[in-house]
Amino acid sequence: MEIENVVENVAFKLLKLAVIHLPEDVKQALEKAYTEETSETGKTQLKAILDNIECAEKYQTPICQDTGTIIFYVKAGAEAKHLEKIEGALIKATRRATVEVPLRPNAVNPFTQKNSGDNTGRLIPWINWEIEPTDEIELTVLPKGGGAENTCVMGMLVPGEGIRGVKKFVVDAVMNAGAKPCPPNILGVGIGGGSDIAMKIAKKALLRPLNNENPNPEIAKLEKEILEAVNMTGIGPMGLGGKTTVLSISIDYAYRHPASYPAAVAFNCWAARRATARISADGTVEYLTHRVDEVI
């Protein structure tokens, strides 16, 4: 089969998998939250979330009606053939998934307010590229819901305040977001780089499985510290009160300019959808975020 067909098929399957089946680590975190939540109202919300996830799998329907803006991450092996065909294949897969899954058409022209109807348009789906020294292609899809996107923030902090400024920035972001991003949330935090770089790495940090510790022990400690702090707000599931406001925080960083201290917080909702697959040079496909029996 031509590489573009393989990529299109895999991308279509990833889109379908992502919007119907949450990754195991997200489900486990929600189940744990349900067991540990002490607010009865919070428990009611988490129970409804878990029931809804089960129904989505049973009826093969998207977990949430907002199937998001479609974002791809591509790790392209420098030795893989026909990389120039990947973009077209991803656009085709998005159009097909919109009709067949179906996905809600979520791509609107910001000038005319017209919805393209097929989840594509100028620069959408958005594709992040990385070149790797292999002959494989790794595809990840992140369908990003609007509610949680609306509470993402980026700030140019005061360099003199250092990490303390970041802690305050994240706590304030969660407080200001309140019920809006459909808590419990997952936060990606990006520090340094520049204004665009901070948000880019914050969003990419959302791809880290929730049960994977940060490889840097100092940052792992910081993630835990901020997680405990934001869960003291009492905002809780759906903002109705409880101790589960954020399920997990994932921090990444880049070196910064001496005069700047950019920081960004990317919110993901409980419907934290993502799916990844690797395509080898011989065309074999391995799904990395989902079980084989979920792939249909």
């Binding site: 919300q45 129904c55 989505a56 329907t61 409980w270």
Partner: peptide, 8 residues
């Protein structure tokens, strides 16, 4: 109603 619980 629980946000996102569209199928319920």
């Amino acid at each position: 109603f629980t946000g996102g619980a569209a199928i319920l």
